[in-house]
């Protein structure tokens, strides 16, 4: 009973801290990009916190979709998936049914990617086929050909990205486990930060040998970053929501509260993936009962979003001509790191 209560309190604390914190990240990201573009840019809270609150206070409208209720429920699934992905990486869930392992993390990430396929196949935005312009006039080309919504095309791209795009992240995610020769997160922490397991609540366990400072760890950290960009669908890997043709992809029809939900999912992913990076590669887990440890985790997890925003500011959209070689190349580096780590 006591264990159960401890898990419950730890989970609630983790959610209460991570959700508001993640709402600051897009503002920081946007500000850095704006500075690179020689302008002032929006205030830090605007793209995250205030946008979410504003969408929350908007009047609900029914989305145009094949199955509107299913389409709406996807946002709730998304938030649940994100939160469980995060909880699996926090220490009190490590022992439950071995969810705190490489399998738990990768399974949840795969579900999150699959959401985009479902969203894309459902949404029927007004901005493409159903626009009231006389397309099929007499003499027009291609009468009788299947007319597709851009979101459905985005869903097809999402499947391709699932197949090849997510490889780098998964390979990089396996490397720390391969070094620890175990599938559990607790073992990965143990080889990096043995002090952590018998420290009191006010102490600060400094990791003695972080994986990121070894050769395979460093290589896989780079690959992890590329995978992070791909999984968040940011430029240059944002083909499934490229502004130039599919506009925003499957999330086009979310309005009001659902859009607020989507913003929360996206911002949480921004934070969770970098928090997992700090946990696995530096060895400082997000532990709500050891505040110093948690704060260091939060501060270090700023590294990834900042690097992301600089990377995004200097890159165009890649088409599949460039995505396949890039993703496969970085997967090869990841595989090389995996081989070194096993020797």
């Amino acid at each position: 009973m006591e264990v159960f209560l401890k898990i419950l309190i730890a989970s609630i604390l983790a959610i209460i801290i991570s959700v508001p914190y993640s709402l600051i990240l897009p503002g920081i990201e946007r500000k850095i990009q704006a500075r690179i573009q020689q302008r002032i840019g929006p205030p830090i809270l605007t793209p995250g916190l205030w946008a979410v609150l504003k969408f929350w206070y908007k009047k609900d409208v029914e989305p145009v979709a094949y199955l509107p209720k299913f389409y709406k429920s996807l946002i709730i699934f998304g938030i649940i998936i994100c939160i469980f992905l995060f909880l699996f990486s926090t220490p009190y869930w490590w022992q439950i049914l071995s969810w705190g392992s490489v399998l738990g993390l990768i399974g949840m990430l795969k579900l999150e990617e699959f959401l985009y396929v479902l969203m894309g196949s459902q949404s029927q935005s007004f901005l493409s086929t159903t626009m009231p312009v006389p397309d099929l006039a007499k003499g027009a080309k291609g009468i009788g050909i299947f007319r597709e919504f851009v979101e459905q095309h985005s869903a097809e791209r999402a499947i391709k990205m699932m197949a090849v795009g997510s490889l780098p992240l998964y390979i990089a995610l396996i490397v720390p486990f391969a070094i620890a020769k175990s599938g559990m997160i607790s073992d990965v922490i143990k080889i990096q930060n043995p002090l952590y397991f018998n420290s009191s609540w006010f102490s600060l366990p400094i990791p003695s040998s972080p994986i990121i400072f070894t050769v395979p760890g460093f290589l896989s950290a780079i690959v992890y970053f590329i995978g992070y960009v791909i999984l968040l669908n940011e430029r240059p890997f944002n083909i499934l929501k490229a502004k130039v043709d599919v506009i925003e992809g499957g999330i086009l029809e979310y309005a009001a509260k659902l859009r607020a939900g989507y913003y929360i999912i996206r911002n949480l992913m921004l934070f969770i993936l970098s928090s997992i990076f700090v946990t696995l590669f530096i060895g400082i887990p997000f532990d709500p009962f050891i505040p110093l440890c948690m704060i260091i985790n939060i501060v270090l997890s700023l590294i990834m979003p900042i690097a992301l925003s600089v990377f995004v500011a200097f890159s165009p959209i890649f088409t599949f001509r460039q995505i396949y070689p890039t993703a496969i190349g970085f997967s090869a580096i990841g595989a090389f790191a995996l081989i070194i780590s096993m020797i």
């Binding site: 605007t46 205030w50 901005l127 502004k243 506009i247 925003e248 086009l252 029809e253 859009r259």
Partner: peptide, 9 residues
């Protein structure tokens, strides 16, 4: 604090 969007939703 004005952000440009292309989506009516």
């Amino acid at each position: 604090r004005v952000l440009l969007t292309w989506n009516p939703r």
